[in-house]
Amino acid sequence: MKIAFIYIAEPYQCYHTASVASALAAIPGHDVVEYYSFPETVEHLSRIRQALDVPAPPLKAFPKSLKARLLKRARRLDQERLVVLRENIAELNQYDAVVATEYTGGVLKEMGLAGPKLILLMHGAGDRYVNDEHLVREFDLTLVPGPKVESYFQDRGLLRPETTRVVGYPKFDVFEAVQRENTVSFANGRPFALYNPHYQRKLTSASGWMMPLIRGFKAQSDYNLVVAPHIKTFHRGFGIRERQLKRQRSPEVLVDTGSSAMLDMTYTSQAALYIGDVSSQVYEFLAIPRPCVFLNPRKLPWQDDPYFLHWTLGEVVEDLDDLMPAIARAQERHAFYRPAQEKLFRETFGEPLLGASQRAADAIAQFMIAA
């Protein structure tokens, strides 16, 4: 069997998929080749294989036309992704299966992918509605992290039981291997809070609340602060946002706009407090139940909305004046939220927590034999 794994976005995809590609390549009769679009992906894949102590499958860069390169230079990355996929259909049609880790891969059949089975290794495990999630129905096999996500997509008629497998969250396997590399420490010795805003304009808390939050942390003495927005926050603007944000660095404020620590659970595993809005990284943080504070500057009507289920796991702040007081009382109120955190974490990722990479590889191998 010839299997192509495709990385068509930023290197965060590596931490969800690389361990599965390695596990599948170790099963006799499966030849795995990886394709990447972002040059930085190579370094991250190498780091993961080194940590896992496994050989790397063959790796190829997606060839790109002048149009694709211009879109990349203009930072129109979503458009570039579609152009790159369309230009490489003939290359991918040589395989028995193509494995992607985002819904966008569902357009491949419409673009002309005819021979290979299309497999989705779903990344992220949050509650947020994603506008291209309807593409899930285009995949021949979908691997999901846990029963929560499985039920969500089956209830909406996007997945059928016979084409769905619950395998867990391979990123935890990668974290288990790389966690010894990075320790976050501040000279003052205080614990740190992680601020992890999403990039989507209609939902992010960053636009109006990030700077007041940073100022608030500089004025208190309980926590340090790590500011690590979703990597796609910096898609546009030609680096202006990064430069503006980096000016906020201080001895008690660490700003990260693109390091591996943003991607590999370094911050989510070590933070004492999570502050965010709709990023699915909150579920990675809850591998160890800890206090959460969620920011709702637009006063969205979130109660009883399944897309904001994680907002039941900590206090939701809607007024800027209440931001720092909520952070100050988060530890005291954590006991109230902890049972719900533990329950929802199990529903999100299933059990056991480790071993998802091998379970996903076995599911792909079994599916291909039966196909």
Rank of each mutant, 00 (worst) to 15 (best):
E102V: 05
H123Y: 14
A125E: 10
G106A: 04
Y103M: 03
V136I: 14
Y103L: 00
D140S: 14
R81L: 13
G106N: 05
L141V: 15
L118K: 02
D155K: 15
E80L: 06
L120G: 02
D96E: 08
G124R: 03
V84E: 06
R86K: 13
V99N: 02
L108F: 08
T104F: 11
D132A: 01
M111H: 09
V149Q: 04
E91K: 03
M122L: 14
L158E: 02
G124K: 04
L92P: 04
R86V: 01
Q94F: 00
L143R: 01
L158S: 09
L141D: 14
Q154E: 13
A125K: 03
N131P: 10
E91M: 10
K117F: 15
N131S: 13
R156G: 07
P147L: 00
A90Q: 13
G157V: 15
P145M: 13
R128G: 05
T101Q: 06
L120F: 10
V84D: 06
A125I: 05
S151E: 08
Q154C: 12
V83D: 06
N131Y: 12
I119W: 10
V98M: 09
G106Y: 00
L143H: 09
A125T: 04
K109D: 00
N93S: 07
D127H: 05
M122E: 13
A97F: 13
R81E: 11
L113T: 04
V83Q: 04
I89D: 01
M111Q: 12
L135G: 00
E133W: 07
D96R: 09
E110I: 02
E102P: 00
L92Q: 11
R128E: 15
L143S: 07
A97L: 13
N88L: 11
M111N: 00
E110Q: 11
G112W: 10
G105A: 08
R156V: 06
P145K: 06
V107E: 01
A125Y: 10
N93D: 10
N93Y: 04
R86D: 05
N131C: 05
G146Y: 00
G115N: 14
R156Q: 15
V144Q: 03
L108Q: 03
K148P: 01
R137Y: 03
T104Y: 08
I89G: 04
E80G: 00
E80Y: 04
L82M: 02
V83I: 14
A100K: 00
L82Y: 13
E138G: 04
P116V: 12
A125V: 08
V136F: 01
P116Y: 07
A125S: 07
V136M: 05
D96L: 13
L158D: 03
E87R: 08
A97I: 14
V83A: 05
A125Q: 06
Y95P: 05
L141F: 15
G115A: 12
A97H: 09
H134D: 11
L121W: 08
R128H: 14
L113Q: 02
R81P: 00
L82K: 06
Y152M: 06
G124A: 11
F139R: 04
D140V: 15
K109G: 08
L118E: 03
K148D: 06
N93Q: 02
E91D: 08
G115V: 13
R81F: 10
A125N: 11
E91I: 12
L85P: 00
L143M: 10
R156C: 14
V83H: 01
R137T: 03
P145A: 12
